[in-house]
C-alpha cells in the first residue's frame, strides 16, 4: 500500500496542476464569454439575442466530448486551419484545445446563470442609477453587475465544479491531468480502487477549495447584510 501511495501520489499531484490550470483558464475565458452572451440575450436586439440563444442550445444540447473531438480531430481536417499558424497552434495541441472546448462549453451554461442573475435586478435600481446621472456603463459596472453576480454566485459555484470535472475529458486527447494519470496508474498497478480513491479524494479537495473560494466571495459581496463588528459600532458597547 505504501509503495502504491509513493508511486501514485506524486504523479496524481502533477496531474492536479494541469487540472487546476485547465479549470482556471477555461473558467476565466468562459465567464467573460458567458457574460457577453447573457448581455446579448438581454440586449433587445433580435439578431444578438437569437445568436446567443442558438449558441446556448447548441453547446448545452451536445456532450462536451463531442465538442472536444470536433475541435481536436475535426478541425484539423481543414487545410486553411493547418496553414494558419495561429489557428494551428490552437487546434493542434491537446491542452489548448481542451481549454478552448471547455471555455466555449461553460460559456453557454454561464450565460444562462448570469442571465438569471441579471434579470433578477429590479428595474427601479437601474432607473435610480440613471436618475443619478450615471452612464449606462457606469451603472452596469457599479450597480447592476454586482447585484446580478451576488444572485448568480451560488449557481456559478456549481458550474465551477462542473468545469473541474469536465477538464477530465482532456485525458481523452492526450492531456495528462488527474484522470489521465489515474487511468495509466490503474492499468499499470491493477490497484484500481485504491487509485480511484486517491484521485477521487484529490478532486473532492479541489472542489472544496473552489466552493470555499465562492463562499468567501459571496461573504464579501454580502457584507452589507452583516452587523458591524470589530472597530465598528457593534463592538463599542462591549468595550464600554
Amino acid at each position: 500500500m505504501w509503495d502504491l501511495i509513493q508511486q501514485s501520489v506524486p504523479r496524481l499531484m502533477s496531474g492536479l496542476i494541469v487540472t487546476v490550470v485547465l479549470t482556471g483558464l477555461s473558467a476565466l475565458a468562459g465567464f467573460h464569454l458567458g457574460l457577453g452572451l447573457a448581455l446579448m440575450r438581454l440586449s433587445g436586439s433580435r439578431v444578438a439575442a437569437g445568436f446567443a440563444k442558438a449558441y446556448s442550445t447548441l453547446f448545452r444540447g451536445t456532450p462536451l466530448l463531442v465538442q472536444l473531438f470536433l475541435f481536436y480531430y475535426g478541425l484539423g481536417e481543414f487545410a486553411f486551419i493547418r496553414d494558419t499558424p495561429a489557428l494551428w497552434w490552437l487546434f493542434s495541441e491537446g491542452s489548448r484545445c481542451a481549454v478552448l472546448a471547455l471555455a466555449l462549453n461553460t460559456a453557454a451554461y454561464t450565460s444562462e446563470i448570469l442571465r438569471g442573475g441579471l434579470m433578477s435586478v429590479p428595474a427601479g435600481v437601474t432607473e435610480a442609477a440613471q436618475a443619478c446621472g450615471m452612464s449606462k456603463w457606469l451603472a452596469f459596472r457599479r450597480i447592476v453587475f454586482p447585484l446580478a453576480l451576488r444572485q448568480a454566485l451560488p449557481a456559478y459555484g456549481n458550474e465551477l465544479i462542473l468545469i473541474a470535472k469536465g477538464s477530465s475529458l482532456a485525458s481523452t486527447i492526450t492531456v495528462l491531468e488527474i484522470t489521465g494519470h489515474a487511468k495509466r496508474l490503474m492499468s499499470q498497478t491493477y490497484a484500481i480502487f485504491e487509485v480511484f480513491a486517491i484521485a477521487g479524494a484529490i478532486y473532492l479537495l479541489f472542489n472544496l477549495v473552489l466552493t470555499g473560494a465562492v463562499r468567501l466571495l459571496e461573504w464579501r459581496l454580502m457584507r452589507h447584510t452583516r452587523p458591524l463588528t470589530g472597530a465598528g459600532i457593534a463592538a463599542a458597547p462591549a468595550a464600554a
Partner: peptide, 14 residues
Amino acid sequence: GVPELLIIYLLFFS
C-alpha cells in the same frame, strides 16, 4: 464531485 470518466474507469477496469 468526482469526474464521470473516473467512475467509468473504476467500474470498467475493476
